[in-house]
Amino acid sequence: MHPVSLRKIAKVYHLDAVTVPALAEVSLDIRPGVFTVLSGPSGSGKTTLLNLIGCIDRPDEGEVIVADQAVQSMSDDALSDFRARHIGFVFQTFNLLPVLTAFENIEYPLVLAKMPAAARKKRVLELLDAVGLAERGDSRPGQLSGGQRQRVAIARALATAPKLVLADEPTANLDSQTGAAIIALMRKLQREHDASFVFSSHDPQVRAEADDVIFIRDGRIAGVEQRTAATQERAAS
């Protein structure tokens, strides 16, 4: 079972009188439990594809199947509930709620999932520990560094233990050292949680860590590279 399957996806943006094709004839399967990177130049359609996979946008044509469910026929409310249960998001600018502490930010998806308070607390403390911020639970985002904020965002994305985590350029706003640490952390957590991580990135560091790399150019799949351990080592070096 593939966590994500796309069949003949097309997406067009209408900017005033101009029609801009963003994706065309895109079909692909994301393998379960792997680290997948959508790679391509700016404007190639990576973010659009990630949005469709994340069920926060709908295609003009084609079929999107996530966790074995065709999502384009779902109502907006059903899709919201579906995202809350099955998908975690990590954003380029972290997008933490500034009025909540790190603890509360991680807790928020669990509140949406209606998890009991005691179980929530246990889960959040585990995640804070997992991302190395056990001592910063009471800090507001404004009191954290960029790397720490992204760690909180990763913990928040993993809070409900989703099988699919999406990240749009997660290292773009971080320095290379912090970015590398974040990628390593995500890689580690991906393995521990056996989740499928899908990134959009043109950061070579991120690509080097990937199990699968999907190359996108001009809104089409230009190639798919599925790596073995050996090829991964070569890519990393």
């Binding site: 994340g54 926060i56 907006d76 409310d77 919201s80 509930d81 579906f82 995202r83 809350a84 249960r85 998001f89 954003f91 600018t93 997008n95 709620l97 500034p98 928020y108 998806p109 949406l112 928040r156």
Partner: peptide, 16 residues
């Protein structure tokens, strides 16, 4: 606005 988008992506309904 970005915060609203984030909440919606996380699964908050329009009604929420």
């Amino acid at each position: 606005t970005v915060e609203i988008g984030t909440l919606r992506a996380m699964g908050v309904r329009r009604g929420g």
